[in-house]
Design a protein around this nucleic acid. Structure first.
Length: 721
DNA sequence: TTCCAGATATTTTTT
DNA sequence: ATATCTGGAA
């Protein structure tokens, strides 16, 4: 593709951004305004115009998926393979740097990345070691604290304590945690970033090398950046590199993970000479959808301000379906999707979005029932499954005996007579000697610290690991190596014995791991199969395993709103629009949280190209008990004329002026949804719904005899209980 | 030490 | 509803 062709496909603003020769460029890009397009075209343009080489460009994203997509698009544009490019997530790039300079970073060559589950285990272990009951200090809290500190770029020694016990304890735990990680050669997600940052600061020559190499730094989704990530970028950029950052403050949805929206605002000051381009023309959605999105997000104060517009058509109104309960909601959604597919819509262009993963279950059931193929993003990730983590732990321990997290995980899986007591003894030894659990094991056997039986079991285990290592060292394929480990460790057998569907699924997953490993290419740095295995393990913990979804047949898409960011679909079903669920009750109390929820709603709405369908359930079985939530405020923030209510089993829809009716009816009766009521004739029941106001007010009651009735409030003489 | 049953806690989003 | 933890029996 020539330089000219590259620019041809762009509108004036996009073009301005792509060709900008300002030293720094900030692109404020609304949803669907061609943000990624600008970024990829800019990279392609820089290279095609000879301003940069593939080796001098560093592009950073937040998700692996985004990184892969960007890579693919650039390859398409430039019509060349993109091996030379550094494109990746912050974590992925940090990992790559630390691997390359592990000595400088004071890490063992085979250091491993710990995911949050490993992290939590380690913390629990520290708590018990320090004799802190997990009632006084909750492990989750500690984990949150440590991650937060790392996101802020703060090492344990810099944690300020103002003499309060809780804070001091957290600090002590953090100190101990760092010690143990360092000794085991483990790094958590935050550590990757923190170390990569320190790598720059402490090694000016190294930094200079990279500053010389890279001429252009590009960052996607800049609104999601946290303190340490920004610091890392700033140091790298120095005052020489050219920065291009792209973002949308209205789509900042990772505040809970330490992302700072403000950074996008201060960027201008931190990098003088920044040219700002706004992309406000939307190419994705119909006007109706855009209007709805704009109306919702307008309720947030302190925005940078943007107004999306489109030249496209008005489109159908947004459909709203009030489901009776979550089953009904799922059934409705499945039926509608079936209709769309029958009508010729490609299933790939349909998505169901929800706030939290727990909601997917009912939807899945309904889809299975209707035999609609679906793929599900996120949720239980492949590499987070128990059996996969066990298998990976074996591999990790084979590669690195100091990996305490891996050892603890599988020392008694499958059960082999090494119980809590033995492990506890090992921990004590490890602490006294300041060594790893593996070394503690050696010590314990030599010095007969353990009972005969325990020592035997332990020795068997240690021999097993040694044998496994020997067995796989000479194998030439990763697949064979993993297969061998799965079988010889007894994992396959262990899970086969598990009863029911579960066991079979686990064995299948283990086989799936073998093929995943088999197709892992790695890069040329690994010269032996063992080294390649190490590389695979390193990347696996950073990999959500979301690739698997792409390989299946045409299917509709299920995902959380968070994972939907950056994607678009012709048909979007946004389900579970209830107060407490979305906005989530955890976020409802603080204004910042609520605003983030609203941005999440904005993200959700703007995923839709042609049509958006919103649903909510008047009653929902949640955590085992029935809950009654009113419709989400976000629905009420959409102007009534943009909405049309869908009635069950009827294609007729009518405009709805939403919000007031229900509330009035209820106010009038002095009752509330979900309340228990008594009727003189029908007995007791639960208030399900209400409509109309004043003399016309009617309520729907589900009576305990199983009947459901609409009653006029005026005449029904309902008694609240 | 293992296994099982029953109690108990835990409900957001992800690299 | 589910996963995780705990305690007690085998």
């Amino acid at each position: 593709m020539t330089v000219l062709n590259l620019l041809d496909q762009l509108n004036p603003e996009q073009r301005q951004a792509v060709e900008s020769d300002a030293q720094h460029l900030l692109v404020l890009a609304g949803a669907g305004s061609g943000k990624t397009r600008v970024l990829t075209h800019r990279i392609a343009w820089l290279i095609a115009a000879g301003l940069a080489s593939p080796y001098s460009v560093l592009a950073v994203t937040f998700t692996n998926k985004a990184a892969r997509e960007m890579r693919g698009r650039i390859e398409e544009l430039l019509e060349t393979p993109s091996h030379g490019f550094w494109i990746g997530t912050f974590h992925g790039l940090a990992h790559r740097l630390l691997k390359a300079h592990h000595e400088t970073a004071k890490l063992p060559a085979n250091f491993q990345v710990m995911d949050s589950d490993d992290q939590l285990r380690l913390i629990k272990r520290i708590l018990s070691e320090m004799n802190i009951s997990d009632e006084r200090v909750q492990p989750k809290q500690v984990q949150w604290f440590i991650n937060q500190q790392k996101d802020e770029g703060r090492r344990a020694q810099y944690v300020t304590s103002h003499g309060d016990w809780y804070q001091d304890t957290l600090k002590d735990i953090y100190v101990r945690y760092e010690e143990l990680c360092q000794r085991s050669g483990l790094v958590d997600f935050g550590e990757l970033l923190l170390r990569a940052h320190e790598l720059w600061l402490e090694n000016p020559e190294l930094l200079a090398h990279y500053q010389q190499r890279f001429t252009h730094l590009l960052v996607d989704e800049f609104q999601d950046i946290n303190t340490i990530q920004y610091a890392w970028l700033q140091v790298l950029a120095g005052n020489k590199l050219s920065m291009t950052i792209v973002g949308d403050d209205d789509q900042s949805i990772y505040g809970w993970r330490g992302a700072k929206v403000e950074t996008i605002q201060t960027f201008e000051h931190d990098f003088p000479g920044t040219h700002i381009v706004r992309l406000e023309q939307n190419y994705r959605s119909t006007a109706a959808i855009l209007d709805a999105a704009n109306a919702v997000i307008a309720n947030n104060p302190a925005r940078l301000g943007k107004n999306l517009w489109t030249e496209g058509e008005r489109g159908d109104p947004i459909r709203l379906y009030a489901a009776f309960n979550e089953q009904d909601e799922a059934r409705f959604t499945a039926d509608e999707i079936q209709r769309l597919i029958d009508g010729g819509t490609n299933p790939n262009d349909i998505a169901i979005l929800y706030r939290s993963n727990a909601q997917s279950r009912v939807l899945e059931e309904a889809l299975i029932h209707s035999q609609i193929p679906y793929r599900i993003y996120g949720g239980q990730r492949f590499y987070e499954r128990l059996e996969i983590r066990n298998s990976v732990a074996y591999l990790r321990l084979i590669l690195n005996r100091q990996d305490d997290a891996a050892l603890e995980r599988i020392i008694n899986v499958p059960t082999r007579g090494i119980g809590n007591k033995t492990v506890e003894t090992l921990r004590v030894v490890a602490r006294d000697q300041g060594c790893s659990l593996w070394q503690a094991g050696l010590f314990a056997i030599e010095n007969s610290v353990l009972t005969k039986r325990a020592a035997n079991a332990l020795e068997d285990f240690m021999l097993l690991i040694a044998d496994l290592e020997e067995a796989i060292t000479d194998l030439d394929e990763l697949g064979k190596m993993v297969k061998t480990v799965n079988e010889a460790s007894g994992l396959i057998e262990f899970h086969e014995k598990e009863k029911g569907e579960k066991g079979r699924a686990r064995v299948e997953n283990l086989q799936e791991l073998v093929s995943a490993v088999q197709s892992f290419a790695g890069n040329d740095e690994a010269d032996t199969p063992m080294a390649l295995l190490g590389q695979f393990l390193g990347e696996a913990s950073l990999d959500a395993g979301d690739r698997q979804a792409d390989e299946f047949e045409d299917s509709i898409n299920l995902m959380t709103l968070h994972s939907a960011k950056g994607l678009e679909f012709d048909q979007v079903f946004l389900v579970g629009l209830e107060e407490g669920l979305f906005p989530h009750k955890m976020s409802m109390n603080d204004p910042g949280g609520l605003q983030e929820e609203r941005r999440l709603a904005y993200v959700g709405i703007t995923r839709a190209r042609h049509q958006l369908t919103l649903t909510y359930a008047e009653s929902r079985r949640l955590f085992g008990s029935e809950t009654f939530n009113s419709v989400s405020r976000f629905v009420r923030e959409i102007p009534g004329e943009l909405l049309s209510e869908v009635r069950l089993r009827s294609s007729v829809s009518r405009p709805v002026s939403f919000g007031l009716q229900q509330d009035m009816a209820i106010d009038h009766a002095g009752l509330s949804l979900g309340q228990r009521v008594r009727h003189p004739m029908f007995g007791e029941g639960t208030l399900l719904n209400a409509e109309g106001g004043g003399a016309q007010a009617r309520v729907q009651v589900s009576f305990d005899d199983g009947s459901e009735r609409w009653l006029m409030v005026q005449y029904a003489k309902l008694e609240g209980l």
